[in-house]
């Protein structure tokens, strides 16, 4: 059949790219993680030595803890904010476009390095946040001088960018059939009960999607710690991607960098797998909607 070959022809560029830019580097980084490689000399096979060193490296543990803190703070907060605002916006409001834009803009601009610069000024000792706190009689906070403050600062940047997840939730809310709300009202369910018994269950596929995406992205955060806190104070915001960057592209310790990359990859997989395998207990696919895709 001629037709069967034509389809392959169209996806051929993607297939070639998959091999060169995904499969090859994926396998290579695993191999490199078992070597000692400083770019100048040829890679030297050293078995699991990089991983052994990693588990004895106190900086690695601080970095790993900071990464977990960052993910545990940002992912739920981002999902809660975006769901909350989407829920309020999902109502016949005048000026809805203005509000949607206002909440959406930070998620589009937030990745720009200029926003990281802005964040430094906003959280500086005499910066905007401390000035606002001063108005309420609160003493200035040294955001960058404590581990907790610094983690909060870079987390705030990610949470501030909740607009894109909010738009996805908003589209999901619009897809919920009006009859279901009417049926709930007939059954005498109040607002809050309807929210938890109708809205949330029907949104679970979207919550699931957003949760997985946000987890994967949060674990790979680089710009915030690199530009805003420089990993400080005392490595308290030295997230794993920054440690990978330093080891690979500053110290040219490619083997060690690959080992940390693979550790991070496995951690992300564990979290993702956990969400996937738990999904059968909390994600509901309605029969009508499931036919698509």
């Amino acid at each position: 059949m001629e037709n069967r070959r034509i389809g392959l022809l169209y996806i051929l560029p993607w297939l070639i790219g998959l091999v060169i830019f995904t499969i090859y580097p994926f396998v290579t980084s695993l191999i490199l993680s078992f070597t000692n490689y400083n770019i100048i000399n040829a890679p030297q096979f050293i078995g699991i030595q990089n991983y052994v060193n990693m588990f004895h490296d106190s900086t690695f543990w601080t970095s790993f803890t900071a990464t977990l803190e960052y993910v545990v703070i940002t992912v739920p907060l981002k999902l809660i904010f975006s769901l909350f605002i989407a829920f309020i916006l999902n109502y016949k409001l005048k000026g809805i476009n203005f509000y949607r834009t206002a909440y959406y803009i930070p998620s589009i601009l937030g990745g720009n390095i200029a926003i990281a610069v802005l964040w430094k000024f906003v959280f500086a000792n005499t910066g905007l946040v401390n000035q606002v706190l001063g108005v309420f009689g609160i003493k200035p906070v040294g955001w960058f001088s404590t581990g907790l403050g610094a983690i909060f600062t870079i987390s705030a940047l990610r949470v501030w960018e909740f607009g894109s997840t909010m738009v996805i939730f908003l589209a999901g809310l619009k897809d919920i059939p009006q009859e279901l709300y009417e049926a709930a009202a007939v059954d005498g369910a109040g607002k809050i009960k309807t929210f938890f018994k109708v809205t949330i269950p029907l949104l679970t596929p979207i919550i699931f999607f957003n949760l997985v995406m946000q987890l994967i992205q949060a674990f790979q955060e680089f710009n915030g710690p690199y530009m805003i806190t420089q990993g400080g104070p005392l490595y308290k915001t030295y997230l794993l991607p920054m440690m990978i960057y330093d080891n690979s592209f500053k110290f040219f310790n490619m083997g060690y960098g690959s080992a940390i990359s693979w550790f991070l990859f496995i951690i992300i997989m564990i979290f993702t797998m956990f969400v996937f395998s738990s999904s059968k207990y909390w994600v509901f696919y309605s029969d009508e909607g499931g036919g698509e895709s």
């Binding site: 830019f21 090859y24 580097p25 994926f26 994967i216 990978i244 490619m254 960098g257 990859f265």
Partner: peptide
């Protein structure tokens, strides 16, 4: 796929 794992190669 977390892209970070592809950076070095």
């Amino acid at each position: 796929l977390p892209q970070i794992v592809l950076r070095i190669p």
